[in-house]
């Protein structure tokens, strides 16, 4: 508690606390100001933040550039969708199946792709994601390219996911759980081995750590949380389609993590907020410059990404000053 209060004195801690409090009460705010639309943006931010935090576990802490993370949106989402289309509506069944399926797929992909390095790793993770994408696009029974409307997971007597505010709060609680897990993960012995391997995997191997197995475990855990985000995404729109795992979405996830700050706990959350805020507010902002300019917002967003990649590697998190770990050191 004392540590928590002390952290509030730094700008970083204060801002993080403010963001979390705002997110916690978002449904009340949107109701008070009658801005239902903002709640749906908020829900998407929270779900994407869960996925981004999970990607950050391997990308930020592990230094493994996985370019196929959106596949777990698909695996989690299709698990819900396929079960629901076959009359199995219970969330108690759907959600564990979705998470296990995502973890199993991650373990398989990780076991094969972690044998490669550098660009080959980027490309093989992308290829496996495309493979699932095309399987999804070929499933005639589940809508093929067009996708499929599904009914939401049912948790009788516990929570009704059709209620937008309840669903938002569930997502928010799961985001907090994911962040808590990621914090434990990053500061554990396991996390330090992973981070050590990021800066020098030869040295870690020489020290006797089975780097491959650590990375595979991290990849699998990351996939499981990605699957959770997919389950939520399918329930948010009551809809699944191959588009939710297109490689562009994987690119968006990388952007979110880098934009927010790689290898930082709250970076992916800041990144998700910034990403969706840009998507929502850049068009109207450009409209001020001239009629219909807003329609072409990506012509500004594209070069922004280039500049971020070139000059702002630390992301939003680095704007808040150095981390406590650096202060101590």
């Amino acid at each position: 508690m004392a540590v928590f209060l002390a952290s509030l004195r730094t700008p970083r801690g204060l801002l993080t606390a403010l963001v979390l409090v705002l997110l916690a009460v978002l449904p009340l705010l949107t109701q008070a100001f009658d801005q239902r639309y903002l709640l749906s943006i908020g829900t998407r931010i929270v779900i994407w933040a869960i996925a981004a935090v999970s990607l950050n576990m391997i990308l930020g802490y592990g230094g493994l550039v996985s370019f196929g993370h959106a596949v777990f949106f698909g695996v989690g989402g299709y698990a819900v969708g396929i079960l629901s289309a076959n009359g199995l509506h219970s969330g108690w069944l759907q959600w564990p199946v979705g998470i296990l399926a995502a973890a199993a797929w991650a373990a398989l992909v990780g076991a094969l792709s972690l044998r490669t390095r550098g660009v080959y790793f980027i490309m093989i993770t992308l290829a496996f994601a495309q493979l699932v994408y095309y399987v999804g696009a070929g499933l005639e029974a589940y809508g093929a390219d067009d996708g499929l409307n599904i009914s939401r997971s049912r948790f009788p007597d516990v929570i009704d996911l059709r209620d937008k505010a309840s669903f938002y709060w569930l997502c928010f609680v799961l985001l907090c759980g994911t962040l808590w897990f990621c914090q434990r993960f990053a500061t554990s012995r396991f996390g330090f081995v992973l981070r050590g391997a990021k800066s020098n995997d030869l040295r870690m191997t020489a020290l006797g750590f089975p780097v491959f197995h650590y990375r595979l475990a991290a990849f699998t855990i990351s996939g499981a949380f990605g699957g959770l985000a997919g389950i939520l995404l399918a329930n948010e729109g009551a809809y699944i389609s191959p588009a939710m795992m297109s490689w562009i979405k994987s690119g968006d996830l990388i952007i979110i993590v880098v934009l927010g700050g790689m290898g930082t706990l709250f970076g992916p959350l800041y990144g998700a907020i910034a990403f969706f805020a840009l998507e929502e507010f850049l068009p109207p902002l450009l409209d001020l410059g001239g009629k219909d300019w807003g329609e072409y917002w990506q012509i500004v967003f594209g070069p922004m990404l280039i500049l971020i990649a070139l000059y702002a590697r630390g992301g939003i998190d680095s704007l808040l000053g150095r981390t406590q770990a650096h202060h101590n050191g």
């Binding site: 990308l59 990388i254 990404l305 971020i308 990649a309």
Partner: peptide
């Protein structure tokens, strides 16, 4: 990673 990000930006552009 920087290259992926920046050239992804080029695609959008």
């Amino acid at each position: 990673l920087d290259q992926v990000l920046a050239t992804f930006g080029l695609i959008l552009f």
